[in-house]
Write a protein that binds this DNA or RNA. Structure first.
Lengths: 237, 237
DNA sequence: GGGACGGTTCGGTCCCGGCCGAAGTTTCCC
DNA sequence: GGGAAACTTCGGCCGGGACCGAACCGTCCC
């Protein structure tokens, strides 16, 4: 990576270089689940020696993509924030919207199908569930989708009426599109997407399956989504 | 760049590697002006030997970031499309929203100030002009901005009423936010931003200054923007 | 036809950085 | 206190890839 005169280009190249290594890319994609991983977990997952991973994490943290937290003898890392997550998503969406990796075996296949049905994508909901929610919000005039991606006035009221706090403080956009790599259609992300996901997990509309990214919609969740948004239960299966 | 087992991560790393070189980054930023450059121009601009640049262009074209067109003994390259431009923008915005490069000298300073006033950003308008247009559209209820970024129904009518064709065919979003690196505020991009920019240049509201990215607002443009959108002429200076 | 010009191919150099294992350091827990 | 576990530091190895100059190939134009 030759460093040019132009400092702007140098910073751009430096940032891209953080992602431009296979091992680091594996880590970043894993961290897209929004949780904090320990260095050891990531090393095993990526298939490299712990000492190798230390160096990678140093670079990613220094570069601002990851945030770290030391607890005793553990080093926890997670994506630095929604913007970092968005950056990784965006690059991942460009680089291969196609084929989700078939890892072979029945167990893998069921895991994949659960992921395709409903999962978290950093801090919001994705998979068929994410699409169904986005469709429902758009159909009811709560979300503009064809001409961009924004909550309408009615949408703001709907969130307020249902007690889903929208955290107006942040500089982060309330609604933005996130391109799903199984469905290949945009679904709701941004502060509103995150609030909806948080609410769904807190009130028990959804529950995490094991410690994975996949979630399942509970019976209560099916009822709530049907009553509040008119989501047909079929759309969630 | 070690290549991992996971093909998804491999593609991600491969894409990032295209940007992760200083010389290629210089080229990509230069090409953000939306025009087609010859290989020689880029080589001189980046300060490397023509033979070196040939290799870089090969990689960028193969990787899908650039499109090329051969004309006689010239090799013209430009960004492959709006999505490629958006990707570069996004990375650039993350890597350094700060200080625009002061290149020293009076000539450079005037060029910079013209750029800050009004310029193109790939295919739409940026700088203070871009912000002023975005503000005006939002103030008149034609564009939602606080809750995301989308044209309203009134906005669609406004474009139609003023004969600005919106090219509904493409899969590209009608409105999206582009983060300006001089103003540090989002302005209108996407198909609507591109249509507005095209219209402004075609009808003579704006004219390119030399062959640069900078544009100036004509007297006719000032009148039109004031009458159609209530843009105060001061906002353009 | 004959330069000049723009671009490409090739060979050779060099350095950055990813990888590992071995030896340290800190924390945890018995 | 002692041993195991999690991580880090260091030294050494190795490959990819960025760079250049020289030679080569079309194209343009006089």
């Amino acid at each position: 990576m030759t460093t040019p005169r132009d400092p702007r280009a140098a910073r751009l190249a430096h940032l891209a270089a953080l992602v431009a290594d296979g091992t680091r890319a594996v880590c970043l994609l894993a961290l897209l689940d929004g949780r904090a991983w320990t260095a050891g977990e990531l090393a095993r997952y990526a298939g490299v020696a712990p000492s190798t991973l230390t160096g990678h994490l140093d670079r990613l943290v220094t570069g601002g993509l990851l945030a770290e937290e030391r607890q005793g003898r553990h080093r926890y890392v997670r994506l630095a924030g929604p913007r970092a997550a968005q950056l990784v998503e965006e690059l991942a969406a460009w680089s291969g919207p196609a084929d989700l990796p078939r890892r072979g075996g029945l167990r893998a296949a069921t895991a994949d199908s659960a992921m395709a049905r409903a999962r978290t994508c950093y801090d919001h909901l994705a998979g068929r569930l994410g699409i169904a929610l986005t469709d429902a919000l758009a159909d009811r005039g709560l979300l503009l989708r064809e001409t961009g991606f924004a909550l309408t006035g009615a949408g703001l009221e709907w969130f307020a009426a249902n007690g889903i706090a929208l955290d107006p403080g942040g500089r982060r956009p309330l609604a933005r599109a996130c391109l799903d790599w199984t469905e290949r259609r945009p679904h709701l992300a941004g502060a509103a997407g995150a609030a909806l996901c948080r609410h769904a997990l807190e009130t028990g509309w959804c529950a995490r399956i094991g410690s994975e990214r996949a979630v399942r919609v509970t019976a209560a969740g099916e009822r709530a989504l049907r009553d509040l948004l008119g989501v047909p239960p079929d759309a969630l299966r």
